[in-house]
């Protein structure tokens, strides 16, 4: 397990270079905090720059939950209206800027998903992809935080880790998860509550047993 944390320098560089293309590492907030601060002062140019730097990530997140392009576009628009209105609240939350932005995008998409209901076909068809843990290559490319989280998810029973990942990535509700995993609702609650607490305990001791 510990070996996975040691990535040779060259590899790490390659990993960092990959960020611009596909990923915005959630812990990398250089400059984005400043932009949010300026947006809180009503700075439209800063808002435009913030949008340019972060909208692809947030669109990806919305699209993953809503699966429908035009709805994800609506969700994205509402997300940035909230960013504009609530930017002044960011600094008090002690959160990384990408985590704050992603949370707004996820909440918006989940609200829309709950309001419209998820087509039953989505529930079955989605089952395979999102449960899979990242392959070693993906894990190696991820940032330190993501690697620690993946290690700690790996300590949970596989089904619970899968349900937790599915909830985060696809926006599943307790009810949907219970039906997908064919367990009673209360069992699913227990799975995820214990899973979340186990996850935090693992992260707090540094991810290594």
């Amino acid at each position: 397990m510990k070996l996975a944390l040691n990535i040779p320098g060259g590899r790490r560089k390659a990993a960092a270079d990959g960020i611009g293309e596909r990923r915005v590492n959630t812990s990398a907030g250089d400059g984005i905090s400043d932009l949010i601060g300026r947006v809180s002062l009503g700075d439209r140019a800063a808002f435009s720059a913030l949008y340019d730097r972060t909208s692809a990530k947030l669109f990806g997140v919305s699209l993953r939950i809503l699966r429908e392009r035009s709805q994800a576009q609506d969700a994205l628009q509402e997300t940035y209206v909230k960013v504009w209105r609530n930017a002044s609240l960011f600094s008090g939350m002690g959160q990384s800027p990408m985590s704050w932005l992603i949370a707004i995008a996820r909440n918006q998409a989940i609200d829309m998903l709950r309001a419209r209901g998820r087509p039953a076909a989505d529930l079955d068809e989605a089952a395979t992809v999102e449960d899979a843990a990242p392959d070693p290559e993906q894990a190696a490319l991820a940032g330190d935080e993501a690697r620690r989280l993946a290690l700690c998810l790996g300590e949970l029973p596989a089904e619970r880790a899968g349900a937790l990942r599915a909830a985060y990535m696809e926006g599943y509700s307790y009810e949907e998860l219970a039906s997908r995993y064919k367990v009673p609702l209360n069992t699913m609650r227990t799975w995820l509550r214990r899973g979340l607490i186990g996850l935090r305990e693992c992260l707090e001791r540094g991810g290594v047993r």
Binding site: R22, R23, V24, N25, T26, S27, S55, A56, K57, F59, G60, V61, L63, R64, S96, M98, S99, I102, A103, P134, Q138, A142, G143, E145, A146, R148, L149, A150, R165, Y168, M169
Partner: peptide, 11 residues
């Protein structure tokens, strides 16, 4: 939030 690292950005 690191879970979102696995979600590809889409312009």
């Amino acid at each position: 939030s690191p879970l979102a690292d696995e979600i590809a950005g889409t312009p």
